[in-house]
Amino acid sequence: MAATEITLEVARYRPGVDSEPVLQSYQVPLREHWAILDGLTYVKDHLDGTLSFRWSCRMGICGSCGMTVNGEPQLSCATFLTDYAPGPIRVEPLHNFPVVRDLVVDIDDFMTKLPKVKPWVIREVQSPIEEGEYLQTPEEMDECQQFSMCINCMLCYSACPVYSLEPDFLGPAAIALAQRYNLDSRDEGADERRDVLSSPEGIWACTFVGECSAVCPKGVDPAGAIQRYKLTAATQSIKELLMPRSLIPRSKG
């Protein structure tokens, strides 16, 4: 007979109260279509109201529910119990972040870094709305489309070996979002983003491990974004050796 339950081993931790995280086991129903998240809400609703974790959309788009499942960063609402049967399944907070409580991590670091790459449209002249849309062909849109798919779920930071050693590193998602605007045909802000991206904490910190792209649930390919910007930056600095910055044509990312 097929098992009807599966064990979740969930990391419990209250910093300042508990000396270290401990794994607590819970038996939850093993049902088709149940995500890890359904297992956790079952625990919260029926077994233990004190377990803390974040979730909202339960459809893989709000980016709230990143966790480490059997050692891998995952969206817990898009990862299913049956894929891990017969279990047990170990559920821990995302790595590389301070733990606030149980499965909840502190992502303030990312939230502070994000505005530094100016992830908004920058233009010398804003055309009035009355003049209608900035034209953009589907091909032009394709240039930045992939990097615009980031849901800020932080799985890439959790997987990134550089971020774990150098917390100042801007990190995969922030750089991908900078590139999302650099490569948008409506944007003229690449030069304003350049100093941050080309700084030691920017693209050059990345040793191209590629883990970020491997774990990204939305196919953003931050490693590709970083790689591409390295080429742009290298070309740009060679040009600068040859002529003053003010004469160099405006760059796209």
Binding site: W120, V121, Q126, S127, I129, E133, Y134, L135, Q136, T137, P138, E140, M141, C144, Q145, S148, Y181, D184, R186, D187
Partner: peptide, 13 residues
């Protein structure tokens, strides 16, 4: 659109 929303486009932009 001016703020960058990637609205789907017709071939002419």
């Amino acid at each position: 659109e001016h703020w960058g929303c990637p609205w789907s486009r017709q071939p002419d932009g």
